[in-house]
Computed example of a mutant assay.
Amino acid sequence: MILIVEPIDPGVMQWLVARHPVRYAPDLARDPRALRQALPQVRALIIPSTVAVDAEALEQAPLLKAVGRLSAGVENLDAEACARAGVEVIRPTDATAQAEAEFVIGALLQMLRRVPVVNAEGLLVGRELGGATVGLIGLTPASEPLARLLEAFGAHVIGYEPTLHANDGAWSTLRVEPVSLRGLMEESDCVAVMLNYFQRYHRLLGERYLAFCKPNQVMVSLGASSLFDEATLADVLGTGRMAAAWFDSMEPQMLEAGRPLHQIDTLQVTPRVASTTRESRVRAAWDVAKRIDTALSLPPVPIGY
Rank of each mutant, 00 (worst) to 15 (best):
L3P: 08
I4E: 10
V5R: 11
E6M: 06
P7L: 04
G11W: 06
Q14R: 15
L16P: 09
D27T: 10
R30F: 10
A44P: 04
A44L: 02
I47A: 09
S49W: 13
A52C: 05
A55R: 15
A81D: 06
R84A: 14
R84N: 11
G86T: 06
R91N: 07
D94W: 02
A97T: 10
A97F: 08
A99E: 09
V104W: 01
Q110R: 13
M111F: 05
L112S: 04
V115T: 14
V115W: 15
L124T: 11
V134G: 09
G135I: 04
A142C: 15
S143V: 09
E144G: 01
R148Y: 07
F153W: 15
V157Y: 06
T163P: 00
H165C: 01
A166Q: 15
N167K: 11
T173Q: 14
V176M: 03
V179K: 12
S180V: 01
E186D: 02
V191R: 01
A192Y: 06
M194R: 10
L195Y: 10
Y201S: 11
L204G: 10
P215H: 00
Q217F: 02
Q217G: 10
V220S: 03
T239Y: 01
R241M: 03
S249R: 13
Q253I: 05
L261W: 07
T277I: 07
A285M: 06
V288K: 06
A289F: 06
D293R: 05
Y305S: 13
